[in-house]
Simulated scan of single mutants.
Amino acid sequence: MPETLPRSHTSICECEEHLLTFYSFPPVMHRYIRSTNAIESFFSNVRQRTDQIGAFTTETSCLTIVWATMQDIHLPRIPVS
């Protein structure tokens, strides 16, 4: 276990720019970016639609339902100031 700590530290330091991208956005947007509510809501909507169908005959028919669900979602506008 202790030998993994230096590797973890090195990995974090190498990716620091990507890990802290969140802070380059205006503070008003932080709560929208860090929240997974939109993602969880999307998966919940897809699950509701696909559960009603039960079984799909092809992968394309499943993807069609997922696409249709995506088209029906209306996300709130994020205030940028």
Results as ranks from 00 to 15, higher is better:
80 V>H: 12
42 F>D: 00
23 Y>N: 13
53 I>P: 03
35 S>C: 03
62 C>T: 06
17 E>N: 11
63 L>P: 11
4 T>I: 10
59 E>Q: 14
27 P>I: 04
2 P>H: 09
3 E>D: 04
33 I>R: 04
37 N>H: 07
55 A>I: 15
53 I>V: 10
12 I>W: 13
38 A>I: 05
53 I>T: 09
53 I>G: 07
38 A>N: 11
48 Q>F: 01
69 T>C: 08
34 R>S: 01
73 I>N: 01
51 D>R: 10
56 F>I: 09
12 I>F: 13
12 I>Q: 08
2 P>N: 07
10 T>Y: 02
50 T>Y: 01
59 E>F: 11
7 R>S: 05
54 G>L: 08
42 F>L: 09
36 T>A: 03
36 T>Y: 00
66 V>R: 00
58 T>V: 14
4 T>Y: 11
52 Q>H: 04
16 E>C: 07
77 R>S: 10
31 R>K: 11
68 A>N: 11
9 H>G: 02
39 I>D: 05
56 F>C: 11
75 L>H: 10
29 M>T: 08
66 V>N: 02
64 T>W: 04
40 E>P: 00
40 E>W: 01
53 I>A: 01
33 I>A: 03
35 S>F: 01
77 R>P: 12
17 E>V: 10
51 D>M: 08
74 H>I: 10
73 I>Q: 03
46 V>T: 01
57 T>G: 06
10 T>H: 06
20 L>K: 15
54 G>S: 08
9 H>A: 07
39 I>A: 03
32 Y>R: 05
1 M>V: 09
62 C>G: 05
81 S>L: 14
62 C>R: 07
78 I>R: 07
80 V>Q: 15
69 T>N: 02
7 R>H: 09
77 R>C: 13
71 Q>F: 04
10 T>F: 08
61 S>C: 14
77 R>F: 12
4 T>K: 11
23 Y>K: 14
30 H>A: 02
50 T>I: 05
46 V>A: 03
3 E>M: 11
74 H>M: 08
42 F>I: 05
4 T>C: 13
59 E>N: 13
15 C>T: 09
72 D>P: 02
79 P>G: 07
31 R>A: 06
45 N>L: 08
27 P>D: 02
81 S>H: 14
23 Y>E: 06
36 T>V: 02
41 S>H: 07
8 S>A: 14
29 M>D: 09
26 P>T: 12
27 P>N: 06
